[in-house]
Each structure stands twice: as C-alpha cells, then as structure tokens.
Design a binder for these strands. Structure first.
Lengths: 128, 128
DNA sequence: TTGATATACCTGTCACTGCTATGTATAATA
DNA sequence: TATTATACATAGCAGTGACAGGTATATCAA
C-alpha cells in the first residue's frame, strides 16, 4: 500500500518513539519492525528514517550508543529518554484528537468502511 | 490544543474533501467548520487553507465557482469532483492503515489513555 | 578468489508545501 | 470615521521526505 508523504511525516515520529518505548533498537531493525507492525502495509526507506532518528536525537527525545553485535557488525542503538516519553504521550494525544475529528466527519457522510471491494455500495452525497 | 504541522498536513486534505463531500463550501466557512467539527481543538489559519484548496483544484479533486452572497460579498465556492471522491476514499484507507498500525504499537506498550493528568501511572519499560 | 546479497549507517540534492506575514477589498457596526 | 468580521490571495522562509549515491562488513555460493 502506498502511504502519502504527509501521512508518513505525521506518523514517523510517534511510531519511532513507540518502537523505542518497547525496547532499544537500531535503524535497520526499526525498518523491519515497521513493516512487521503494519502487516506489510507500510514500507519506510532508510534514507527517510535516519534523518528522523538524528532529529529526535537532536531534540533530546532519544539517545544513541554504538554497539558491536555478535555478528561483528556495528550497530547504533537508540534509547528513548524521559523527554521522549513525554513527547510520545503528546504525539498520541494530538493524533487521537485529529483522528476523532476525521472519523466524526466520515461518520456524518455515512460512507461505508472501505473494504476490498465495496465501492459501488457508497451512497453518493451530492453537493448543495 | 496545539497540533503539530505534520499532522495538520496529513489531515488537511481528507478533512477538506470530507467537508466538501457534505456540501459545497468556501474558504472562510471551511475554517469555521473545522473548528466546529473538532470541538475547538483544531484551529486552521487561512494562509494554510487557501494553498490547500488551490492544490486540490489543480489536481482536479475540487472545482471552484464565484458567487455573490446576499450580504454582497464575493465567495469562492468549492465543489468536490468525482475524482475527489475517489481520492477521499483513498485518503481514508491510508489513514486507517496508519492509524491501525500506531494503535497496535500503543496497545502493545500498555500505555494508559492520556487523560488530563495520568503521567506517573505509565509503566516504564527499560531498554534491553 | 570472486561476486552477490544482506546487513548497517550516512548525507547531498531536489522538490514540495505548510506557516507566517502581509496585502487587498467590502460589509457591518460602533 | 474607525474598527471588526468577512473573504481571498501570495511572497518568502524553513523544514523534510524521497531519491540517489556513498562507505563498510559478514555470509554464502560459484
């Protein structure tokens, strides 16, 4: 599934913070975790993730440390900070506020939930 | 409530399309409708909305026409097109995919729903 | 040895766009 | 006459996701 860039931008911060709130992780593993958590619906590129991690580090929401895995490869592990946890709660509150608003409008439109094939069932609401 | 710019960007398109799917409207009225629908939690500026409307018009998702209200003022009314309705359904599908992913992680964290004051109740998950 | 693939991180550039500030204009009201 | 609300528009700024390219190492197959 294609997710537009605005949605990517809006969700990347809360998702990264939430993944790191589960446990410390590193860039490559985060990419796989996102694909896994979304059931394959979301695919992030590394070129998009690393700047996000660096920005969160700059803001003090996460902290980095280098480690060497048993495989011998260097990994940059990130850990969420207490400020990051506060930010995560704030991101969550904002997301839920917007989500409630959007769902409110959709409900008013009485549009059916878009399933695999349910297009023609939609009652077309004509403008005034 | 402050909503960050990424969330504004991600939600502005589906919200505008949904409002116009209800009925034709114009810029100033859309701003009021958003404030109303969100219960005052979302406040859009006109300088942010007009570029969005122009972009949607350029993409063929909405159409504009000038009208003169009984008050005598010019208003630019927008109407959602059939392509706009398709786009609205697509936006909705994407939003719900991301929303499901985010809520999935939150649930895994077992974080309490952020109420007014519920910070210290969160179980602190320490990194590995 | 060589080559391919997966792992693992980083950044420069492009293009887009929301935000802020500012401008224009009119009707209603004080 | 002055202020406020209505109503639309855009120039410039700044942030950033996407893309492409770069570096390095471990594993495995040919």
């Amino acid at each position: 599934m294609e997710i537009n860039k605005d949605l990517i931008a809006a969700s990347s911060t809360p998702i990264v913070l939430a993944i790191l709130a589960e446990e410390d992780s590193y860039g490559y593993a985060i990419l796989q975790r996102v694909r896994e958590l979304s059931g394959g619906r979301m695919e992030w590129t590394d070129g998009m993730l690393y700047p996000v991690l660096h920005r969160l580090e700059r803001l003090g929401h996460i902290e980095a440390r280098w480690e060497v895995a048993e495989s011998g490869r260097r990994r940059k592990y990130y850990r969420i900070t207490s400020r990051g946890r506060v930010q995560l709660a704030e991101e969550r509150r904002q997301w839920q506020a917007v989500d409630a608003t959007i769902r409110g409008i959709w409900q008013m439109l009485s549009l059916p939930v878009p399933a695999s094939h349910a297009a023609s069932a939609a009652p077309v609401h004509q403008g005034a």
